[in-house]
């Protein structure tokens, strides 16, 4: 790659940092290599937890898939904790990416409080530059009404960004054909719990379908489905379903995440008992959680507030005023 055209990455990279990084990395490599050479090889017998899971999957749980049995059955408590780790990550993304104004949707909420701001605080004028950048941002976010719905009528080969919301008719048709197939197959991955699959891959597939719809049709079309009121409620409902499933085991059977549902024959949809129920809860949790995470990052608004010299150092718990601010 041409170095002179990428000033931030390549040009100002100091040499000593490279050597120091190399030395530290090599040290880690030696340590890791020594550790991994002592790891069990492919000839070692399976650990007893694995053999237990394999042997009990079919007779005890009527499940043909030991991985699902491990995930939702015998190590269900582990997955329970992982689920809430996921939930914590999603909550922190929501907190970190939140806009200043009260949130209504994932897209365009940065302009939601503008009118109220004008009424409440008319003195706070925005200068010309900020207005221009805000206008550019609004145009970029697709909030203007002058843009066409789709780019099909636009002359071919016009340079510059598209004003349209969605992609061309060819792409939209392909997505219309492919997305339902993929969504149905994602649900099949969960329901067909005795082949590879379950809540985690199914949820990831649902996220993929949502992103496809977003890329193909534009944010206005999916804003009805992908809004915080719906997604976050669904996520909490999934979490409640998981907690309820596990606690009912404690009440009815006497052990947390014990099976309290009748087991059907292997190879049918009810074969796993609570494993399938947990899997459905996990599908909701993973699908909505990852969607909230991705849409949250997508909906980060621009920070157009003008720079004020030394502002950061004042807020910065009384450390010495910096000279670096002048460089900007």
């Amino acid at each position: 790659m041409t170095k002179e055209k990428h000033p931030i990455v390549a040009d100002r990279e100091p040499r000593h940092r490279l050597w120091l990084g190399l030395v530290l990395t090599l040290g880690t490599a030696v340590a890791l290599g020594a550790a991994y050479l002592a790891a069990p090889r492919e000839n070692a017998p399976l650990p007893s937890a694995a053999t237990y899971a394999l042997v009990t999957a079919l007779p005890d749980w009527k499940l043909l898939e030991p991985v699902n049995e491990v995930v939702y059955g015998s190590r269900g408590f582990d997955t329970f904790g992982e689920t809430f780790l996921l939930l914590a990550a999603v909550v922190s993304i929501v907190v970190l990416t939140r806009p200043r104004e009260p949130r209504r949707g994932y897209f365009g909420e940065h302009t939601a409080g503008e009118r109220e701001q004008q009424e409440v605080d008319p003195d706070e004028r925005v200068d010309e530059e900020e207005r221009a950048t805000r206008a550019a941002d609004t145009r970029e976010q697709g909030k203007i009404s002058s843009g066409p719905e789709d780019p099909d009528s636009a002359p071919l080969g016009a340079h510059g960004p598209e004003r349209a919301e969605s992609l061309t008719v060819v792409t939209r048709t392909a997505i219309r054909v492919a997305a339902p197939i993929l969504a149905v197959t994602g649900c099949y991955l969960v329901a067909w719990g005795y082949s590879p699959g379950g809540g985690f891959p199914g949820g990831a597939v649902l996220l993929g379908v949502l992103l496809l719809a977003y890329a193909g049709f534009g944010r206005r079309r999916i804003a009805r489905v992908a809004r915080p009121g719906l997604l976050e409620t669904a996520e909490m409902a999934g979490a409640l379903l998981i907690i309820g499933t596990e606690l009912l085991g404690l009440v009815l059977v006497g052990s947390f995440s014990g099976n309290w549902l009748p087991l059907a024959e292997p190879g049918t949809i009810r074969s796993g008992g609570i494993v399938q129920l947990f899997s459905v809860g996990e599908l909701i949790e993973v699908g909505t959680g990852l969607s909230i995470a991705v849409l949250g990052v997508l909906s980060i608004s621009r920070d157009w507030a003008p720079d004020e010299e030394g502002q950061e150092s004042d807020e910065d718990d009384g450390q010495s005023p910096d000279e670096g601010g002048g460089e900007r």
């Binding site: 080969g157 992609l167 061309t168 060819v170 392909a174 997505i175």
Partner: peptide
């Protein structure tokens, strides 16, 4: 074909 179309169009634009 759809992906190729989208890519070629995007590259041209």
């Amino acid at each position: 074909p759809a992906a190729s179309h989208a890519l070629a169009r995007a590259a041209y634009r």
